[in-house]
């Protein structure tokens, strides 16, 4: 079982009044098959913490440790750039508030991208994944022709395409209306549960936080 441990990892910022630690020190472990909600108001450091967990940002204090299913361990902050890229590519899926699909790739190609980066088979798997999410009909369209809800579903498909151990979702419903938000939340929970991966969701939405197995409150 893969786990991602967060041990008081934080970045330091100078906000003009002095040095500020973002986020406040927290410790938790994201485990396969469980969901964790990072809950807090805007500016509490939810997105920063997700980027630190993904190895995109290197924390100024604390650490993040990843244990994969084979028992190998990676101390993310102290790993090399190359190791962090490999960790992100192989073990992580990322979902953003603004979808962040690559506009110059079709829907199918967006889903194929993590597979290709991992040297895995491509289009058939991607189409299967899209079919599961009810998006097969728009496989050859470009992202800007889709609605917000559809784009976020494609983002979920892309995040899960290479069967990662951990999915990090940054305000996945923050840019959607109520109906689409509920549908996307449902889909996200269902698919991560089916894939038995750890899901870490950054949100300020109480309803989403309530669905998580564990809630980490950030002040």
């Amino acid at each position: 079982m893969a786990t991602l441990e967060v041990r008081r990892a934080a970045k330091h910022f100078d906000d003009g009044r002095g040095r500020r630690r973002v986020p406040a020190p927290v410790e938790f472990t994201a485990q396969s098959g469980r969901t964790t909600a990072l809950w807090g108001p805007s500016g509490s450091g939810k997105s920063t913490l997700l980027k630190v967990m993904a190895g995109i940002l290197v924390p100024d204090e604390g650490t993040v440790v990843f244990h994969d299913a084979d028992g190998d361990t990676l101390d993310v902050p102290s790993a090399s750039e190359r190791q962090r890229v490999r960790f992100r590519r192989r073990h992580l899926g990322f979902i953003f508030q603004f979808f962040n699909l690559v506009p110059t790739l079709t829907v199918a190609e967006n889903v194929m991208l993590p597979l290709e980066l991992n040297g895995l088979a491509g289009r058939t798997d991607a189409l299967d994944r899209l079919g599961t999410l009810g998006l097969a009909h728009c496989a050859d369209r470009f992202p800007e022709t889709l609605s917000g809800g559809e784009q976020q579903r494609v983002a979920i498909a892309r995040a899960l395409a290479h069967e990662p151990a951990v999915v990090l979702a940054d305000e996945p419903t923050g840019n959607l209306d109520g109906g689409n938000a509920d549908a996307v939340t449902e889909l996200l929970w269902r698919e991560t549960d089916r894939a038995q991966c750890a899901l870490v969701v950054a949100t300020h939405n109480q309803r989403i936080a309530d669905r998580a197995d564990e809630v980490i409150a950030l002040a």
């Binding site: 995109i56 190359r82 890229v85 992100r88 992580l92 990322f94 953003f96 690559v102 110059t104 892309r158």
Partner: peptide, 13 residues
């Protein structure tokens, strides 16, 4: 922006 998205997906610099 596009490169940031690709980096998040796992592409290396």
């Amino acid at each position: 922006t596009e490169h940031d998205r690709l980096l998040a997906v796992g592409a290396s610099r």
